[in-house]
Design a protein around this nucleic acid. Structure first.
Lengths: 151, 151
DNA sequence: CTTCTTGCAAAATATTTGCAGGATT
DNA sequence: AATCCTGCAAATATTTTGCAAGAAG
């Protein structure tokens, strides 16, 4: 059930029109660059990338577009380190996933795990709560860094 | 092996002296108020609390004290919501623990779980990584809120 | 008396907002 | 033509920093 990125952009535009919104050149470019971008850019990184093709673009437009996409559930804001000043924007498929960050090279790996549900269920039972979502970060040393470490 | 809060404060003071640091009235009061405080205060909340007994205190002193305690491993900075502007400072026992936040009343519950290790191990094996720590947030509706909801 | 710490003010950083002109439907 | 969106500038919010005066060892 994989939906390609262009399909997702089309869907987003349709929802936009349905709500009386307008597809501007700025939004269109931001959407395209974002869809082609790998990783978890900050607003500023995205801004720089789009500005290559659209020099007049303003950072506040990027922020407004990102907040709109956030509402639409198309991106989610994250901070990979507790003390990170800037938010990073995750464009991944909407499927639940988690992150590992290497504390050495700062690389982020996305992953899923069959062992998450027991954690949720255990908590829910113990506290009679309803668990709706989870945010999980692992920190450590990635395989690349532990190999290079030998040098 | 529970160490009471006063004991922990004493230990902190000793480490401070060992490093050529000085125990000022400000640090002493901040430490005491923090040890007696429940929950996860922001720097500003702590500042307001200490200022009741020490009106001349400056917010920057609170920040500096908190960063010092953070280095000492006595508090850790957290953000319970991704878009939270302010950091919150967790004064809990150093033992690993996780957080649940009720999306309705914003209450935070600390918990531990025997089901965390499998998540870490599974990731570590799959990616040949070394997992050193974890930060886990659950979001949902707490039992109080789901009861009140019936009204 | 030496060095560390404070209070203050100002800087730094990240994000948001009001508004007038311009673009989209 | 109506209204939504942009760029700009300024506001906001949080945290950090330089410095002179004061406090701790």
């Amino acid at each position: 059930m994989i939906r390609n990125k262009e399909g997702s952009v089309q869907e987003t535009i349709q929802r936009l029109h349905a709500q009386g919104g307008r597809m501007t050149v700025q939004r269109r470019k931001i959407l395209d660059v974002l869809a082609a971008m790998q990783g978890h850019p900050t607003a500023e990184e995205l801004y720089e990338a789009v500005r290559q093709q659209m020099p007049g673009l303003h950072l506040s437009t990027v922020y407004r577009t990102l907040r709109w996409l956030e509402q639409e559930g198309k991106v989610s804001a994250r901070r990979f380190e507790e003390d990170a000043r800037q938010e990073r924007f995750d464009v991944s498929h909407p499927k639940e996933h988690h992150h590992f960050q290497c504390t050495q090279c700062k690389k982020v790996i996305e992953f899923d795990s069959p062992f998450i549900d027991p954690v949720k269920n255990h908590f829910a039972n113990q506290f009679s709560a309803q668990v709706a979502s989870i945010s999980l970060m692992l920190y450590g040393i990635c395989s690349d860094c532990s190999q290079n470490h030998i040098i």
